[in-house]
Design a protein around this nucleic acid. Structure first.
Length: 191
DNA sequence: CATGGGATTGACT
DNA sequence: GTCAATCCCATGC
């Protein structure tokens, strides 16, 4: 995807990223679940304003924002909206596409549904680390490109794992996909 | 400088 | 269902 793709409104970008392909080296997967975050709502890291941690979020669109969650997992986001606005799309789940044996090795799991269904899982499967923070998704080691064009039905629901602004319906997922994380919450509370 | 809280996962009861 | 692991960094003294 080109940089201007990411400059649009963050929820529109989050929806449009469904079906695109994330690639890192030999491994790649189709995005089946995303969430939008924006500086004007308190669940976003950028809510606190421009700090060392959030600098990437306020930078140019189309970069990767990668941070550590719970001291354990790396989370991959695509920075969205124009430079100066703190917004990003969290990539929450992929359908494994290439390098599946390598993913199995890195994850220590066999089932396809266990490789990339979750934001911490997919970064482990694709070996995406904190050092990728700030990297260009249009030409860096980690890339996002258009996927096999197919009309995907998208379910809109509430975001997962947050304690503030829980009511916003800013989570997007492929309806019925077995590669989406926490499938129960998609089915129970579609918005 | 000390503290506290996560955009989670996996193991265990 | 419960819970620990583990580290970055924002905040407050």
């Amino acid at each position: 995807m080109k940089p201007e793709f990411y400059a649009g409104e963050v929820c529109a970008v989050a929806r449009a990223l469904i079906g695109c392909v994330v690639r890192h080296g030999e491994t790649a997967g189709v995005i089946v679940e995303t969430e939008a975050y924006h500086e004007r709502e308190p669940a976003s890291h950028s809510y606190v304003g421009l700090t060392a941690r959030t600098a990437t979020l306020f930078g140019p669109p189309g970069r990767a924002y990668v941070y550590r969650s719970y001291g354990v997992h790396a989370m991959l986001n695509a920075v969205a909206e124009p430079e100066g606005v703190g917004a990003a799309v969290l990539i929450r789940a992929l359908e494994p596409l290439e390098g599946i044996e390598l993913m199995r090795q890195r994850r220590g799991r066999e089932r396809l549904e266990d490789l990339c269904a979750g934001p911490g899982r997919l970064t482990q499967a694709l070996a995406i680390e904190l050092r990728h923070n700030g990297g260009d998704l249009c030409g860096g080691p980690v890339t996002i490109t258009p996927g096999p064009a197919a009309a995907l039905e998208i379910t809109v629901s509430r975001r997962i794992g947050i304690t503030r602004a829980v009511e916003l319906p800013w989570r997007y997922s492929v309806t019925g996909s077995r590669f989406v994380s926490r499938r129960g919450s998609t089915l129970v509370r579609p918005v």
